[in-house]
């Protein structure tokens, strides 16, 4: 069953077409990798998918609803979680308060001004942290975490709304190989446990070929290939784009 359906998505910055008529589908529960050389337009795509950028043209349908140009908070409420290339967390807070903030947002208790936040969703926050293996660091300041732990925290934030689709930009960037594998496995496990589809970008081709059900390849703002690992390895346009062959 198709969860996300993107059609003719287009975006340019100052006359410079960054994303040009991209169309693809993601099925429920599917793990899809979006790869391509630097500057191919992957992150711009992601930013349009979760509403941080408005597309110039095209449709983004989530479960049949066109969410193109919706605001990020509405898209999030429909069940789209997001992870960033450079881990984005709330640096001045404890690990638990990071997750607590997400839960406050999910449960629409943001506009409470009097009740102490410390009383809100502590158990739920710790449960989420347990899922990503950070429970023992719950009381620590975010600024003291190792980068891998920050990525884990980010994943906890991304799944706090029990999303149907996770958009993750380079989940393993900036990490040593063993840590990469652990974070990637965690991402897949979370997706499985929450029966959630994953669309991710990644430079580590090993990780891509090992984990993705399907691979999309972008170059110069356009989608140039689509298929499973074997098909992509064999695709001549992909080889041209990556290797200049």
């Amino acid at each position: 069953m198709t969860l996300l359906s993107v059609r003719a998505l287009t975006k340019s910055f100052g006359g410079n077409a960054v994303v040009r008529g991209v169309s693809f589908d993601v099925a429920a529960g599917e793990v899809v990798a979006l790869i391509g050389p630097n500057g191919a337009g992957k992150t711009t795509c992601f930013n349009m998918l979760n509403g941080q950028l408005q597309p110039d043209a095209g449709q983004i349908r989530l479960d049949g609803t066109n969410i193109a140009a919706w605001s990020p908070d509405r898209i999030w409420r429909l069940g789209v979680g997001r992870g960033f290339q450079i881990a984005a967390t709330f640096g001045s807070m404890t690990v638990r308060d990071n997750v607590r903030t997400a839960l406050i947002s999910r449960n629409r208790t943001v506009w409470r001004f009097f009740r102490p936040a410390a009383h809100e969703f502590t158990r739920e926050a710790d449960a989420l942290l347990d899922q990503v293996g950070l429970k023992h660091l719950a009381g620590q300041g975010c600024g003291t975490l190792a980068y891998g732990d920050l990525k884990r925290l980010e994943l906890a934030l991304a799944i706090s709304n029990q999303p149907r689709l996770l958009l993750v930009d380079e989940p393993t960037a900036g990490m040593a190989p063993p840590e990469r594998r652990a974070v990637m496995d965690l991402l897949l496990m979370l997706a499985r446990n929450n029966s959630c589809a994953v669309l991710f970008t990644e430079h580590d081709t090993d990780a891509v070929f090992r984990t993705a059900d399907r691979i999309l390849v972008m170059a110069d703002g356009a989608l140039i290939a689509e298929g499973d690992a074997t098909a992509i390895r064999a695709n001549s346009r992909v080889r041209t784009a990556y290797l200049g062959e």
């Binding site: 990020p72 960033f84 943001v110 001004f113 410390a118 709304n161």
Partner: peptide, 27 residues
């Protein structure tokens, strides 16, 4: 109380990282 309330937490979240705040549904 406001600083320590859910709203206060959300406000600090928006200060710390606007993209992250947006992507967990804050405004």
């Amino acid at each position: 109380r406001v600083i320590r309330s859910p709203y206060g937490l959300a406000l600090m979240a928006a200060r710390d990282s606007e993209p992250r705040a947006l992507s967990i549904g804050l405004q």
